[in-house]
Write a protein that binds this DNA or RNA. Structure first.
Lengths: 202, 202
DNA sequence: CGGGTTCTTGAGTGATCGCTCTAGAATGGG
DNA sequence: CCCATTCTAGAGCGATCACTCAAGAACCCG
């Protein structure tokens, strides 16, 4: 429309990525509904008007926060492991190991935002709960796909069940996130990860 | 004070246990903060005045609901298994099997109330979140105690780690609850339970 | 039946929710 | 400089939150 991105008018007084990061932390800590616009504006250092002009509404801000989380190390380690590791077992071992280290890390809120930020919502925000549920189920799908591929490639025996294995590891990881939020240490989670991997078919 | 329990005045028009059950269902479905007093009075079939007279306030009602849940089959099966099964492994196998059946049962809200009803709360209700977290950690303690006893009795080898094993199974169970709320079937959860038990020390 | 007691009803409390709007401040283009 | 444009600041919108209270209805005892 305006051709070159010529800037006109008063420039924003805040760094969009920085305030989005602050919002992400808050949603990560408390969850979607338990975090109010007032909480957000206080933590982001901006006023409601600026927030709505920059991000739309609370739901849109949350979805952007989830995207930002997904691009951060803590949010991206599963996809990275699935992509980079040579074997499915290696990928799973790495995911469990990294989850055990990341979930209780005091440098950020405990556990996984995708797992815990929209467990309790009112009917009005069912859409938000569904948004995260779909992400979790998509992740489960990625596990299943990787395991199916491993079976085809001969890494996994013919009588193993990729979907069952994927669901099992998804449950373990979600449980580890919850345990981290309940105060589990990295040591405890490392032990859980090690035991979980024992279920891998001979 | 009044000696015999002679009834005086207008009798209550509702069954206390029945309306508490309705409240429990609602909290189980949506969680603590996402369930409003208005939602509760509608489902319980009573007015705010009656609710407050009978249960105190929202927090007290919730705690009574948690107690009621803990006395129901779905809330009590873990304690029953730990108490009734001869071996620690047998108890854990039964717990996993029964969780797989109970958590996705459409006869009631999915998953475990204790695990999922206070994940997202505002600062004002941190007490409620702590209340459920303590219940979960106490449950982990029961697992640890049972496994330690099993090790003493020779069922579990000397080099097994009761606390690590307990934390692992606690994580799996919490993950199964979450998976049930995400739509996992009883079949999926049964498979998860079977795989989880494979981690039991030789 | 009358008096004492307890419960129900429904309106209403202040606080907070997500969100909006207006007035003014800060910029670039002409 | 002056104006169009875009941002900030802060008051304020209706709705809903948990919760309360006054008035009347329903019971037991005498």
């Amino acid at each position: 429309m305006t051709g070159t991105g010529a800037k006109r008018g008063r420039p924003p007084a805040f760094d969009r990525a920085a305030v989005l990061d602050a919002a992400t932390r808050l949603f990560w800590e408390r969850g979607y509904e338990a975090t109010s616009i007032c909480d957000l504006t206080r933590a982001m250092g901006i006023k409601p008007g600026s927030l709505y002009a920059a991000f739309g509404d609370k739901k849109a801000l949350f979805k952007e926060a989830v995207q930002a989380y997904g691009s951060s190390p803590v949010g991206a380690f599963m996809a990275a492991a699935l992509d980079e590791e040579r074997t499915a077992r290696g990928a799973m071992a790495r995911i469990l190991r990294e989850a055990a280290a990341a979930y209780p890390d005091p440098a950020h809120p405990a556990g996984c935002l995708t797992i815990s930020a929209a467990v309790n919502v009112t009917e009005a925000d069912d859409e938000i709960a569904a948004y995260l549920r779909d992400l979790r189920n998509a992740n489960l799908g990625h596990f299943t796909a990787r395991f199916t591929e491993a079976q085809r490639a001969g890494e996994l025996s013919k009588d193993a069940e990729p979907a069952a294995l994927a669901a099992y590891f998804a449950a373990v990881i979600q449980g580890m996130s919850q345990r981290a939020r309940d105060g589990a240490t990295a040591d405890e989670l490392r032990a859980t990860a090690a035991l979980a991997l024992a279920a891998w078919p001979t």
